[in-house]
Design a protein around this nucleic acid. Sequence first.
DNA 1: GCCATTAAATGACGATCATCATATTAGATG
DNA 2: CATCTAATATGATGATCGTCATTTAATGGC
Lengths: 192, 192
Amino acid sequence: MRYAKGHKESTREKIVQAASRRFRQDGAEGVGVAALMAEAGLTHGGFYSHFESKEALLSASIEEGMTQSLDELIQLAKRYGDDVTALARAYLHPRHRDHPEKGCAAAALAPELARHSATTRAAFTARLQALFKLIEERLPATLSAAQRRERSMAIFATLMGTLQMARAVDDKGLSERILQSGIHAATALAQG
Amino acid sequence: MRYAKGHKESTREKIVQAASRRFRQDGAEGVGVAALMAEAGLTHGGFYSHFESKEALLSASIEEGMTQSLDELIQLAKRYGDDVTALARAYLHPRHRDHPEKGCAAAALAPELARHSATTRAAFTARLQALFKLIEERLPATLSAAQRRERSMAIFATLMGTLQMARAVDDKGLSERILQSGIHAATALAQG
DNA sequence: GCCATTAAATGACGATCATCATATTAGATG
DNA sequence: CATCTAATATGATGATCGTCATTTAATGGC
């Protein structure tokens, strides 16, 4: 249809946005190509003119989802005081637990990612390291760079593991206690 | 065929064992009923005389897998000194990272579990609490019971999150550093 | 050694999966 | 306004999904 130039790019972007939500909500294997396209307001046919495969869309979605939730995390953390405790409070907020589709892609998909393509895992690794950096910058300057780097990894592991457990357990009270334990632990790990 | 009594029970057990391996390896949605039965040396037909649904098998497999890896963790930890650091070293050993099918079911399946039935999540919750207790028992007696309980949750979150990240990243060196960071963090969180 | 019983195998159900070939149609270009 | 082209839709591929009805076959009880 000889659309305005950039039309296809923007459609592709819409697909990635919609897919990144759906993948986080239902898992990479929990949603099909047709449903992903429908979520973007399209039919399934044109999919392969935008992406080489479903795996390629997953790759792009991971990048999109990780970037998006990283940005949002930064914004939210600022409101809480912008230190590691603030990050933890933002990340481990019940709203985040209850809305995986808008939240951290790592928490929603980490175990599956280990089974996916090198490209997908590379995209994930790059974004994960940006996340580490975000935490590093909020650790006390009294720590060495190497110490900050190591701690940032463990702090994110704690946040992600905590969020996943809080989502998986079948007991609302326990879920709340798990979230609290994560906030306290992240704070403790951030001490000089 | 009027087999010896207990034959069917033992077949059922074999299916659960095999399924618990496969679910951890490929995810709950990554493997079909036919493949699960084949893994146990059977064909798919008899499946529904053993289980009400695939979901019911998942439920039993979570229970089996969590119990199994809990027992193994206890055994391994003993060799390392039987404190929290020992648990962390056992849990975050490269062998565990490289063999999810024999390892912790929580680390392999946590995000998916949040999307499954109440029964499955209840089975998971019960086993998770046994895991918390295991850690609690290895925390210093100088801490209050409430403190030990809270810390045990955060310590397991750290271990699980660390293992998942170490599995997902596309960089062997980074993976090793992630594992180390988790061991150090778990040790730090276990201090009185 | 046959029979009754029942575990397991065969095979089929409609639905959905990822992928692709072909047809339609929107809209910028002339 | 008519035309051309590229973006999307339609529709089909064979494979696999979970589930179930029917058939086969093994063996303890007689």
